[in-house]
Simulated scan of single mutants.
Amino acid sequence: MNSEPVALIIIDMQRGMQKPEAGERNNPGAERNIQSLLEAWRRAGWPVVSVRHISRTQGSPFWPGQTGAEFQPELAPLDTEHVVEKCVPDAFIHSGLERWLHVRGIRSVVLVGVSTSNSVESTARTAGNLGFNTIVISDATFTFAKKDFAGVQRPAEEVHAMSLANLDGEYASIMSTADAINLL
């Protein structure tokens, strides 16, 4: 990267994502990789943004006040780190995130978290469209199995790979945790 600050944006790493009812997922080491990146960012003194999804559907594990809406303890933000709350997949919509980044002169963002095919992809597309140098970390993101439009059940790894392919070179660059840490 360079001497300009690069924001690490951790998307929806909440307790509700750890529940088995979320479904079959890929990348079981994603949390460990996110934690490695978080530690590296903190050592470098670079900005960290934690994004929390707050559901508008009562009964959702992400409904305000539910334990599922809480950050996973090992990835919880420090008091000095910025927290963004959202109620749609895209972390830029109605959250003030774009302004927060611009005010600090941040032009590059690294995205990690869940889910690759939803909030990560949506946020990456907007970041790229807004002109941010956007990097998505392939092994620090994960998603869930899903039926495609034809009704064919697709495994989580396949859904993940397609989401990364949708982003690569168009809205974002894709790299691994090790590559991102080496750039620090």
Results as ranks from 00 to 15, higher is better:
R56I: 12
Q58N: 06
P28I: 08
W63D: 02
S36N: 13
Q72F: 12
V6A: 07
N2F: 08
I34T: 12
L38S: 05
P64A: 14
E31F: 15
E24V: 10
P64S: 14
A7P: 01
G59C: 06
T57L: 15
F71W: 03
H53F: 15
R56W: 09
P20H: 07
R52L: 09
R15G: 01
G59H: 09
V48C: 07
A30D: 06
R43A: 12
S60M: 07
A30E: 08
P47A: 11
P61A: 13
Q35H: 12
T67V: 11
V49P: 02
I11E: 01
M1A: 14
P47G: 12
F71D: 02
P47C: 11
F62I: 09
P28M: 09
G16V: 04
G23W: 02
S60C: 05
H53P: 02
N33K: 08
A69V: 08
S3R: 14
Q72L: 14
A22L: 12
E24Y: 07
A44L: 09
D12W: 06
V6P: 00
L75E: 04
V6F: 00
A69W: 02
R32F: 13
I11Q: 03
E24C: 04
T67A: 13
E4D: 10
S36Q: 11
I9C: 00
G23K: 02
A44D: 04
I34E: 02
A76D: 00
S3I: 11
L37Y: 09
G29K: 10
I34S: 01
N27W: 04
E74T: 13
V51Y: 01
G65Y: 06
N27L: 06
I10D: 00
G23P: 01
T67G: 03
K19E: 12
R15Q: 12
Q66A: 13
A7T: 03
S3L: 13
S36G: 08
N27Y: 05
R42E: 01
E24F: 07
A69H: 02
W41M: 04
L37W: 07
P5M: 00
E4Y: 09
E39G: 04
D12P: 04
M13G: 01
N33L: 02
M13S: 10
